[in-house]
Design a protein around this nucleic acid. Sequence first.
DNA 1: CAGTTCACG
DNA 2: ACGTACGTGAACTGT
Length: 539
Amino acid sequence: RDEAALLAALARRPMAGFDLKPLYRVLAAAGQSQASTRDAREEKGGRPGPPEPLPVPAGDVKLAAYLLDPVRNRYHLVDLARQFLGVEVEEGPADRPADPACRTPALLGRDAALCARLRPAIEAEIAARGLERVYREIELPLVPVLAAMEVAGIAVDREQLERLGRQFAARSEELAQRIYELAGETFNINSTQQLGQVLFERLKLPVVKKTKTGYSTDAEVLEALAAEHPIAELVLEYRSLAKLRGTYVEGLAEHIGPDGRIHTTFQQTVAATGRLSSTQPNLQNIPIRDEPGRSLRRAFVAAPGHRLVAADYSQIELRVLAHYSGDRALHEAFAHGQDVHARTASEIFGVPLEQVTPEQRRVAKAVNFGLAYGQTDFGLARALRIGRAEAKRFMERYFERYPGVKRYMEETIRRARQTGEVTTLFGRRRPIPEIRHRVPHIRQNAERVAINTPIQGSAADIMKLAMIRVHGALLREGLSARIVLQVHDELIVEAPEDEVPRVAALLRREMEGAYRLDVPLVVEVKAGVNWYEMEEMNG
DNA sequence: CAGTTCACG
DNA sequence: ACGTACGTGAACTGT
Ligand SMILES: [Mg+2]
């Protein structure tokens, strides 16, 4: 009654504040239930029309503070008050939203007043630092989009999840018994400490790597030990099943709501590069690389009568690199729609494109992959399990054939050293003070960050713009389809069956057109009844 | 709470 | 001689 009127009033009026997404989530949820009653009215002959979109927030001091310094680990209102107003106060409801005790009228009013005073101070700094566009055109318009995605959630088939859980448990138990037999005792396989004692003391296996606290038992070590003792492979498989059961089967089940859906939270002020992250639960790291983990995606389903439509950017980071570097050869590969990894292989190995072997392509793919990370010969050698000298030759050959890329990287580091920061396509900034550090490994780490951040961050800028465009286009075109997930270079939309062709076309159009690079952006679209079985729609 | 490990892009 | 590919989040162990 009064609450509905209040929400309706709030939904019409642009607001400024601190961390507005949770409020937008409430408004989006109210709008969603209102939409279903409106649909019911239309069935009875009411007037159709697109739903009212929520207004873009007028300001959000938390988002602004994040743009000013995206590396901080928290953006509490009290910290901002100290930094920008020189005011020292106790934490209130803005910083302790889960604590009902501090939700008093006095403190709520105080925090609101702090926001009002902070906003001009912080926004002046935003303007001064050239962050106006990323603030007004990306982060603020994204708030209602993310809120709508969180409210929509994604449907999960609990029975499917539990079936997989039983399979994983059975296999896991079998592996544990065989591990105990080979060890000659039972122990907690999940304990790295106990596992280390079994492997390196009882079984006397060679120690290949150490951690700060003792023996390393990570996958790389176990893969090396597999040549020495059969227990290693069993532990590897046991580990992967333990991860699947704990993190995914059990972890996800706890998050299924009464509506049969999981509603993640997208963090907009965490990743230093400008990416989103996903928590409670993390839906951006659902297994895909191997079975049986990949089969978990069968549990992520479209509602009855609907389909999941997934659209992902092809090679977005390499395209950003091509754009920034202006490298002729890299440009050409994308302009001609070539298979970039094959093209790179052909360049590195000096063979015609048609004669590139799968092995050569695999090497080239690893080289391309490492570029965005500021790769070293050591890192490439480890990734490919080859000698460091050979890795060094591959990299030298690459930079001979792609001199523009080499130049770009050197120039990026030089500028970062000069300015103490790097920026993205949209002017997002990341300070990198360590780039002038006198300890070599700290400085070198900073140099890799300087290479990676403009690439990863610009890709994030493009994706965020695309999300705003897709969300707007869906509403404008009166479609019921809604974005439900973002996984860095991929958007997942839930669409009524009959909207699928239109939604697929819309996704391609809005994502490919989100930003004009010097090379084309290409989007691949798939659709299916769940997140596992998806058919290409690149017709 | 730190440390280790491992899931994703 | 050192440390070594970028960015995340979650589960688990052990203190
Ligand atoms: Mg992709």
